[in-house]
Design a protein around this nucleic acid. Structure first.
Lengths: 174, 174
DNA sequence: CGTCATTCAATTGCGCACAACTCAATTGTG
DNA sequence: CACAATTGAGTTGTGCGCAATTGAATGACG
């Protein structure tokens, strides 16, 4: 039935690929948002958003970090982290202070309150697990699969980037 | 070593779960953004963002659809779709017109240009596939896994918020 | 027939993601 | 040492995602 709307075009491998693409695109997109949604409900109690929770997870492991390192852990840049960290600071969970050693760098560290929040966060994964019915092995397996995908995609992005040059006149550096 | 920052607390299963949670949260979040990033680069040629591409994929399959149905396919509400569709309309790819049968409903349909864009989009999945090195079976397997996850998460979310019933009914998809 | 609840799209407000840019601090190179 | 290049954080602008609200059209019910 699909081919009928594109007369003169038989079902080619391209068409099949496009449909398959729809499936995987949609699945990953939907999974990510569904995940986000479940966490949103549970994290509301802690007053955190999902990305803020990710930042806190990193800080609970290394409780003094420059913004740069934080960004490397999370693959996020200052454009995302700066306002997010300001909100965490306004919530009293972290403090930001410029490094004395390098005035360009800003050190992020947990406040007492930020450290204390970890205690309440300990129940989060259990609640997630019980919500999803996924066990540790399933989680680990899925994670491995996703990391494979991310690695492949990052490599692809890095390969595509240097040449870049789509139709729009790329800004060549003088 | 990690536990040292939280004196008096041994490494309990809770701590392990929190670390595991960090892994899976981060992996899914990163995979989603990496995926988005690769598509961003490829879709730039078509003048589409990734969510806009998802909308077009649906419209190429059913080229006349009310916003409501579109939202059910993509698990997106009007708050996201309305401005997105306006941009697609401004780009000349779709037309939006209120249904004569039900004045509340808005029908979205492809323009000639929107239909024509499909021809150029046919190469997208192949470029993605060649970028990632993932074959059709791997894609299908991952998709199945993600759909499982989404189903589990949706069920969990529905259970957590029984009153605000998810207007987006559980979707039946191919 | 009139009232009331429901449905659908649109809007508002907030937060995240990312590109492009600014600006100061640091590093390097002659 | 001077000066250009690089680095790190922040800002701006655009777009997505979602909750909450608005407003109009529809449908149900007494």
């Amino acid at each position: 039935m699909t081919g009928a709307r594109y007369p003169g075009r038989m079902n080619t491998p391209d068409d099949d690929w496009l449909r398959l693409d729809q499936q995987i695109c949609f699945s990953l997109h939907a999974a990510s948002r569904a995940f986000n949604g479940v966490y949103r409900g549970i994290l509301k109690d802690l007053g955190l958003t999902y990305p803020q929770y990710l930042v806190m997870l990193v800080l609970w492991e290394h409780d003094e970090l420059p913004v740069k390192k934080l960004g490397e852990h999370l693959r996020l840049d200052s454009g995302t982290l700066s306002p997010l960290l300001k909100r965490l600071e306004a919530a009293g969970l972290v403090r930001r202070e410029r490094s004395a050693r390098d005035e360009r760098s800003v050190e992020v560290r947990l406040t007492e309150e930020g450290v204390a929040l970890r205690g309440r966060a300990l129940q989060v994964p259990r609640r997630i697990a019980s919500s999803t019915g996924f066990g540790p092995e399933e989680v680990r397996a899925l994670r491995a699969r996703l990391d494979e995908l991310t690695t492949a995609l990052d490599t692809a992005a890095a390969r595509a980037e240097p040449q870049g040059g789509p139709s729009t006149a790329a800004a060549e550096r003088p």
